[in-house]
Design a protein around this nucleic acid. Structure first.
Lengths: 171, 171
DNA sequence: GAGACCCTTACGTAGCGTAAGTGTGC
DNA sequence: TGCACACTTACGCTACGTAAGGGTCT
């Protein structure tokens, strides 16, 4: 018997991808997707009758966003969660303003206070972003260094072994 | 794997820093220093009579190098260990060549084979470096995106809280 | 009815953080 | 002598990896 009708289905009219497809498309593992869900970074997707998860296009985009923030910018999942939540709040308010631009002064004030709140809670995150700018220069320097090293390696490799194979990685 | 040098301490005539000083200068914790030692990324430093660790200037540099490889380029400690070991081997050979440029053909051949070996074992690492070049473009794009976002946040913040912290200049 | 695919449960790993209890050095 | 500093031991946390055992599906 059918078990669950999600109490609030944001939009699962579009939920058509099984976990394996999402994993493949986003380049993360199924474990990771379940883990993100467990930690609240992804909202629980809808399910098929048998319990299989069904993801939407939006979910896919969200995963990609998480991955970018994590891998390229080095944020922790906790930070990412905060950022995404804050971003959602801002979007909500933006929507609200669009739909009710002439709300009462108190409502407007409340919206504003909310914005200030999420903004302040992102303070450390902002610092991290600034630090990244500094890091970028260093990164480029490093890359140049390794580029030179690679050239050295290439020269050695070229002169030497015609048959270079067979080494399995790792200890 | 070539691991140990002759039991001669490379030069602890210079070993003068206690763990706390090294931690402070390199920005890592004492725990991290002990952990690196435990994992073989740092060779065990000399000790005082009571057991206190004594680090040299070289050790400090090594820690800084590890941190750069890890934080800026995202290598794992295992990879870093391999890289540093390989780099050491290359330096040894460079030294050898300088001191005995006219060794026998077999010795020269042996040196060369060693170079090839460490080179091949760094193959996956080289790929990672190449991937980083690709990532750099994406990183810059992201940074631009967040720079815009920061401006938004700044506007909100400016209007609102007078005691909002000093925003750093810079791009 | 047989894979390919998915489920939960749960233990393993990396890279440290963080005590706890105790010894060392200036 | 005090007290900052160091030592070992060991359990905790994050962000997953990796079976194990068992249902589900066009």
């Amino acid at each position: 018997m059918p078990k669950q009708q999600p109490s609030v289905a944001t939009r699962d009219d579009e939920a058509t991808y099984q976990i394996g497809e999402v994993a493949e498309r986003t380049g993360v593992t199924q474990r990771t997707l379940r883990f993100y869900e467990e930690k609240g970074l992804l909202q629980p997707p809808s399910r098929m009758e048998g319990g299989f998860r069904l993801y939407s296009e939006d979910d896919v985009r969200r995963v990609e966003q998480i991955k970018r923030l994590q891998k390229l910018l080095g944020f922790t999942l906790a930070e990412i969660k905060e950022m995404l939540e804050a971003e959602e709040v801002r979007e909500e308010i933006r929507e609200e303003r669009r739909q009710q631009p002439d709300a009462g002064a108190d409502v407007k004030r409340a919206r504003f206070l909310t914005l200030i709140d999420v903004t302040e809670r992102q303070h450390d995150i902002r610092q991290k972003v600034e630090a990244l700018n500094a890091m970028k220069a260093e990164l480029e320097e490093r890359l140049a260094h390794y580029a030179r090293r690679l050239e050295e390696l290439d020269e050695v490799g070229k002169v030497s072994s015609p048959s270079a194979t067979a080494s399995a990685p790792q200890s």
